[in-house]
Amino acid sequence: MRRWFLIATAVLTLVSSGCSGLRVGGEDAPFPTISPPGGMKAVSWKNFAFAVPGEWREETDGNGGHHWRDASGETVMTAGYSTMSHCPKEADLRRSEGDTNVTGYAPLRVPGAAGGARIVFDRPSYDVNDATNLLAWLKDCQTELAIEVYATGSVVDDIASSIVAQADD
């Protein structure tokens, strides 16, 4: 039911034209822009933009998945956007399911988005503790950005506060 939440790297089905620098999506799509906070760099995708620490290195896999690694090579974040079948309900976002234990929830205000959520979770089978899922969706509730951050501390706040959305014209 919440497969998009449980497996963040599987939500990357809309990437149709591959990656061109840090822009992902079709050429005619709106690509919002941001001025990233100091020490961070901007990422601009179809309908969404956000910032990540400047030292994090982005990698893509053959399935359109986007992963960021820190200087030690550890994966610190995954992100993607997907098509949704319906608007997420707060009760569903708060629910622990399978191996994902939700330990915190707060609405996330994202300029240009219809809604958003900040979900803190543990996933013991992957040795993941205190990770954060940052979600934002457009007003049609058909397009969603999902960012799964494995780092902790103020970097999560910096990424969350940088997210913006822009619907198709």
Rank of each mutant, 00 (worst) to 15 (best):
T75P: 04
R95P: 12
Y81T: 09
E74W: 01
G54K: 13
S72D: 01
G64A: 02
W56S: 01
R57W: 10
N47C: 07
N63W: 03
V76A: 02
D99C: 12
E55M: 05
P53A: 09
G64L: 01
G39N: 03
F50Y: 05
T60K: 11
R69W: 00
S96L: 12
D70R: 02
G38T: 13
S85D: 13
D61V: 06
H67F: 15
A42G: 08
C87P: 11
M40R: 06
H66R: 15
D92S: 15
R94Y: 01
G65P: 02
R95M: 15
P53I: 04
G39H: 03
G62W: 07
S85P: 09
N63R: 14
A42C: 05
H66Y: 03
H67E: 08
E59Q: 06
G73E: 00
G64W: 12
P37M: 12
P36F: 09
A91L: 11
G80L: 05
E90S: 08
T78L: 05
G62M: 10
W68P: 00
Y81V: 06
D70N: 03
G98V: 00
E58D: 10
D92L: 13
F48D: 11
E74D: 13
F50K: 00
A49Q: 09
F48K: 14
T83Y: 14
A51R: 02
H67M: 06
L93N: 08
N63K: 13
T78E: 03
S44R: 12
G54Y: 11
S72N: 00
A42K: 02
S82D: 15
A91P: 07
R95Q: 15
M77R: 01
H66V: 07
A71M: 06
G62K: 10
A91M: 12
A51I: 04
L93R: 03
G64M: 00
M84E: 13
E58P: 05
T83N: 10
P88L: 11
M40F: 13
P88D: 15
H66I: 12
G62R: 10
P36I: 03
W45E: 09
M84I: 07
E97S: 12
A91Y: 10
A71I: 08
E59F: 05
K46Y: 11
G73R: 00
E55H: 07
D61T: 08
P37W: 04
E74G: 02
S44H: 10
R95S: 15
P36K: 02
A71S: 09
R57E: 02
